Simulated scan of single mutants.
Amino acid sequence: MRAFLTRHLGADGGVLIFDETAQAKKGTKTAAVGRQYSGTMGRVENVIVAVYTTYATKRGHALIDRDLYVQADWFDDPARMTTAGFPKEHA
């Protein structure tokens, strides 16, 4: 990944950008769903929050990583974690 980014996007002043984005969800079964404040919606909603890492230079940008933010109450329910597809070692 590093070689690809250097070859295609390499330029002085490159930065890593971390962005969290919430998406509204109905129900309780979607992995990592929970009620929390969403800046996107401007209120507390039932949402999932994804955190993205992007590398950007004046030549362009590329997504280099992503993950779901998992609220603490999910970790108190191992069966729910398993049903949602999280591996046992997920932290």
Rank of each mutant, 00 (worst) to 15 (best):
G85I: 02
K26V: 15
T40E: 00
T21F: 00
T21G: 01
Q23S: 05
T53M: 15
T57L: 12
G85F: 00
K25E: 05
L9N: 09
I48A: 00
F75I: 02
W74Q: 05
D12C: 08
L63T: 05
N46F: 02
G60N: 10
M1C: 13
R59F: 11
Q71P: 08
E89K: 15
E20Q: 06
A22T: 10
V47I: 07
W74K: 07
H90E: 14
V33N: 04
G27R: 01
K29G: 04
G42R: 06
V47Q: 00
A11Q: 13
K29S: 07
L68M: 09
Q71H: 06
E20P: 01
V33W: 01
I48F: 02
E20D: 12
V70H: 07
K58L: 14
R80L: 11
Y69L: 05
T53A: 15
S38R: 04
A72G: 03
T83M: 01
G13P: 15
A11L: 10
D19P: 02
R2Y: 14
D65N: 15
A22I: 01
V44W: 04
T54Y: 08
G85V: 04
I64N: 06
V70K: 08
M81H: 07
Y69D: 04
N46C: 03
G10D: 08
R43F: 04
A11M: 12
T82M: 09
G13E: 14
R35C: 01
P78I: 09
D76F: 10
R2W: 13
E20V: 03
L5H: 12
R66T: 06
A31E: 04
